[in-house]
Design a protein around this nucleic acid. Structure first.
Lengths: 346, 346
DNA sequence: GCTTGATTTGGTAGCGCTACCATTGCAATC
DNA sequence: GATTGCAATGGTAGCGCTACCAAATCAAGC
């Protein structure tokens, strides 16, 4: 049986959206030329550029970055992993990360690993599946599996908020050990002699109070009393913890300084102190960590360890952008440092 | 000149990563069968499933979701837009959004529109370019341009944290007008008669204090004094604002109740009150907004408007997942409501 | 005129995956 | 045995874009 030529067999799979081909046809140029007009306009004549721009405007064309990413193996997608977003400490980092990347035309995917690390491997696998141009690990302990996955993927990785001896790839952070030591020295210099600690149960907080602990011993002081609370740290835990620290206080060995692993905990400690009639700083000095927006304006204003979370985010983003643009990275590990801000609570 | 057949012309474009084809070859099946084994295992025999699983394990294959998304026009990517992530109010929503989506195999892209809405259009364009399966707008004023772009893209949109009369698509929020009214009624019932307001300059806060204002008038009370501060609202602004409210207090028309547009502001107001010897709640009642984690544990504990931010996020995610799975959505607008939590500050 | 080199444009062939349709094998039914 | 129906597998053809190479165009130089 003879049948006529097959009908054009219009594909039903198309998403229906305007494509680069539509724009090109409208502008009277080849698709690849339209692509260049949008991505590398300097390679294209004025006339063509204008025609393509007009076509884009009149069709409302929005490039499909999924297709572009697949073709160019550059997704312009970046993943940021935090333990949990409601932890407040990493907010500034996430914010500056998102902003810096947005300006460079990158999009940030947010991943929450959870404090227990159970979801971590699944999360990393999901992330790698998106073929991001970079991964920023914000305060995360990574399993051996996870490290392997990231290394094998070849994706640039920036670890932050810590100074590990063996970074996966790049790193921008500070030494928690130094922080603990510095706070102990600071309190010792202020004449404080009996230290207490209120800390969340995360590994970096542990680094801080352990070095705080050994520094105290090194000064010839009694071993600090440590109260560990579950993460995320909140005002409530701060209040509870002060009570626990006070309970075991004899008359002549009262704690006279408390190092908190977050400003929120410090806020709680100071709240409870007021309720119990403990004077700050007269009876007890309080040091926080993070220098969140409220620290400077509390009453009394909180002495705390200031970390430039915004700078961490910007530097992490810069690392990845440099790598993406093929720039050599000479310094793969950056110590961003910290500062003890001396205010009224000490 | 006669030359032999061209060499295989090995493409140099491949990313080098393991592909589904590699897995299929190793498992001794066709690529499409391997695809089914991974995506719809019930369509495949036990034997094949096992072979493919083994091949995946031995190669460390991670599916390329960019390619999958392009082919299936389902990116399993979702965008969440907030004014700024460091605003704290939306954190719980972002958290539950990310978690709910992660469980369903979706990834969340984070976008910060800024409070001024300048970057909004550029941000939305960048988002649409990723062809996400949904967009969650968290407390955002959207321009006409932006609305058009979203509507034209056909992407499911959920607006949250507000109850606009004309939603773009779907909505889960609550009535800020009702909140203002309810707080006024609450304070009035407590015998308070001279109201003050401390509010961030965002449009939703404005809705709240304007209806608070008119409710006060309706009760026959004097017009509340309003202090507006820039967003994001912090403790500092709360302290400043209390001073401003007190300044204009005569002896016999002292403000006896303050409605703050965030718990952070309330914390500031209460801090300054303590400094100035203003007793809470005896002299002045304070009501916050948000019921952040610290509100219940402040001293005195803060009476505040509780919004279930987590529920908003989960419901927004559910909307988009339902849409993605082709389920009918009968109720496209959901009022999640709010609750005044009566504590010690009133 | 012809070469040379730079600039601008176009064609082809994928990127890695899945939608769609076709085929195979095999038990159940008439 | 032929037919039907279903489950399991495979082949083909894109999804919308860009890398790579080839060709065309043009000004400059001899």
């Amino acid at each position: 049986m003879l049948i006529g030529p097959l009908p054009p067999k219009r594909s039903r799979r198309s998403s229906g959206a305007v494509t680069l081909h539509d724009v090109a046809r409208l502008a009277g140029v080849a698709p690849i030329t339209a692509s260049r007009a949008l991505n590398t306009p300097e390679q294209v004549s004025e006339a063509v550029l204008q025609k393509v721009k007009d076509a884009v405007a009149s069709t409302g064309y929005v490039p499909n970055r999924l297709a572009g990413g697949l073709a160019s193996t550059r997704s312009r997608l970046v993943a940021a992993v935090v333990p949990t977003i409601s932890g407040a400490v990493f907010l500034e980092t996430v914010q500056s990360l998102t902003e810096t990347f947005a300006q460079a035309g990158y999009q940030v995917m947010l991943g929450q690993a959870g404090y227990d690390g159970l979801r971590e491997d699944a999360l990393l696998k999901a992330i790698v599946g998106r073929r991001p141009d970079g991964v920023v690990l914000t305060g995360i302990v990574h399993s051996v599996e996870g490290r392997k996955l990231l290394t094998a993927s070849g994706i640039p990785v920036v670890e932050t908020w810590d100074l590990t001896p063996t970074p996966i790839d790049m790193l921008v952070g500070f030494s928690h050990v130094e922080v603990g030591r510095a706070v102990a020295a600071f309190l010792h210099a202020r004449g404080r002699r009996r230290f207490g600690v209120v800390a969340g149960n995360d590994p970096r907080a542990k680094l801080r109070y352990e070095s705080f602990h050994s520094a105290a011993i090194a000064f010839g002081l009694p071993a600090p009393k440590v109260v560990v609370v579950p993460a995320p740290t909140t005002l409530k835990y701060g209040r509870d913890s002060l009570s626990r620290l006070m309970e075991c206080n004899g008359a002549n060995n009262a704690i006279d300084a408390i190092f908190c692993s977050s400003d929120s905990l410090a806020l709680g400690v100071m709240t409870e102190a007021r309720v119990q009639g403990v004077r700050i700083p007269e009876d007890v000095a309080v040091v926080g960590f993070g220098d969140l927006d409220f620290a400077a304006y509390m009453q009394p204003a909180l002495t705390t360890v200031q970390i430039n979370g915004g700078a961490i985010g910007r530097q992490a983003a810069q690392f990845i952008l440099d790598r993406a643009d093929g720039r050599e990275i000479v310094q793969r590990v950056i110590d961003i440092g910290f500062k003890i801000v001396d205010r009224q609570s000490t």
